[in-house]
Design a binder for these strands. Structure first.
Length: 433
DNA sequence: ACTATGCCTTCTTA
DNA sequence: ATAAGAAGGCATA
């Protein structure tokens, strides 16, 4: 029962191309756990993968289960009994490159999106390295069914519970047990719905049980067959083909995948788009959730006239707008803006500062600069300490000028004082058992 | 075809 | 303190 040695390897990757600290917790996957000292871990394809990242490299290691608990592969593709370490290392590297979707040049894409969209250009510099993962389609499907009307920390807890109760045990990392994501068969068994309800899944218990049965019925091949042929799943035996021409509402294959997914229980347009983008390799997919809808209203002039509320027609209009603006990888760009809007990231770097004068109050909380000038109020959302410092200086200057003008005193008399300065760090709570 | 409403549960905000 | 609202929506009428 000896555990295979878990040696660290490294891969040259810049933070511009991939930032795991952002990418692994921006709501794409709900399964990554951060242990002590910045090590991110998750089970993937029957092994525990762990990552650390510095400015030049991605460091990784894989821990395999003891041979006895390895899932038995079909005899035709069974590896040689030797099952050498070097073979595993090769496999793991390929898996990592696949999972992190490392082929597209993200810096080039950011430049492209910045050139075509001033709003992206403004927000993106603080959120480099947000890359769309190539997750397993089935896992993405279940994960995003859990996401409806829900928040990231609770979703993570639910997915963790799915693995714990229905996924194969892989091994321990420290004292923490790691289980694989459950198969459709495991979630299609009788009693799953009742059990999940007891575990606090709410109305999603029924969706998961039903969808698992439907996928089992249709066959996992059906689901994997919805994949972008240019980007098949890892280890999936599929022909690589052309994905077709880009249209304003996406390629034919994307539209077909989206439509077919809608047949599943608990899968509406938004969840289907998440699965298309993150589980099936359709980069033009733009999931329009409440966040994206707010962004569309705030920064892209939606929410008026024909598109007053988020109806089915509005949903398509918003997604098409972003596809036209950002192109074939619209879903990737969308993810950057989505991440920029997440509270967990806003709070992380936000300083809490109050600047007061007789006329003007500047408050900075949770990444927002609020200037209160008598009855007027102005809000600016900021993400980095550097930008916050800049804006505070700017506001102090404004405050001095305003005070001088209205009260007719010397600029120095303006009482611009930093009352409170404190870094607020918000941490999402961990999963419960 | 569109539009409202209930739904499980937890956490935040007023 | 206690209530209402929001949280990566969906299914149903």
């Amino acid at each position: 029962m000896a555990m295979r040695a878990a040696e660290w390897h490294r891969l040259p990757v810049s933070l511009t191309e991939l930032c795991i600290n952002t990418t692994l917790r921006c709501g794409q996957s709900f399964r990554w756990r951060k242990s002590t000292d910045d090590e991110w871990s998750c089970t993937l394809h029957g092994r525990i993968l762990s990552f650390r990242q510095d400015t030049t490299h991605l460091h990784y290691r894989a821990i395999f289960p003891p041979q006895a608990t390895l899932p038995t592969p079909p005899p035709s593709v069974a590896p040689s009994p030797a099952h050498s370490t070097s073979l595993d290392a090769d496999d793991t590297l390929a898996l990592i490159k696949h999972y992190f979707n490392l082929t597209p040049n993200l810096a080039d894409l950011y430049k492209q999106w910045s050139a075509s969209d001033p709003n992206f250009q403004k927000l993106a510099p603080n959120f480099a390295g947000v890359r769309i993962l190539r997750q397993d389609a089935w896992e993405a499907l279940i994960g995003f069914i859990c996401s409806s009307n829900n928040n990231i920390s609770r979703i993570s807890g639910m997915v963790h519970n799915l693995c714990l109760h229905y996924g194969a045990f892989i091994g321990h990392l420290g004292s923490e047990p790691y289980h694989d994501f459950p198969t459709p068969q495991a979630l299609a068994k009788d009693g799953v719905e009742a059990h999940l309800s007891k575990l606090g899944f709410g109305y999603r218990a029924k969706y998961i049980a039903k969808t698992a049965k439907m996928v089992e019925e249709k066959g996992i091949v059906w689901l994997e067959g919805l994949c972008n042929p240019e980007s098949p799943g890892f280890g999936v035996d599929a022909k690589v083909g052309a994905a077709g021409d880009m249209l304003e509402d996406g390629r034919e294959g994307y539209k077909r995948a989206h439509e077919e997914l809608l047949a599943l229980h608990g899968v509406g347009p938004k969840v289907a788009d998440c699965v298309c983008l993150m589980g099936l390799g359709w980069s033009e997919s733009v999931p329009v959730d409440t966040h994206v809808w707010k962004i569309a209203q705030r920064d892209y002039k939606f929410g008026k006239g024909k598109h007053k509320s988020l109806t089915a027609a509005t949903y398509t209009a918003v997604a098409n707008h972003f596809r036209k603006l950002w192109g074939k990888e619209a879903g990737w760009a969308h993810s950057v803006l989505f991440t920029a809007d997440l509270k967990t990231f806003a709070g992380q770097l936000a300083a809490k500062i109050e600047v007061k004068s007789e006329e003007i109050t500047v408050k900075i909380e949770e990444g927002k600069v609020v200037t209160v000038k008598k009855e007027e109020k102005e809000e600016i959302t900021l993400k980095t300490e550097a930008r916050i410092a800049e804006v505070v200086e700017e506001k102090k200057t404004t405050a001095k000028k305003a005070t001088k003008k209205s009260v007719k005193r010397k600029a120095n008399d303006a009482q611009v004082v930093v009352v409170k300065e404190e870094v607020v760090t918000r941490r999402s709570k961990r999963a419960r058992t």
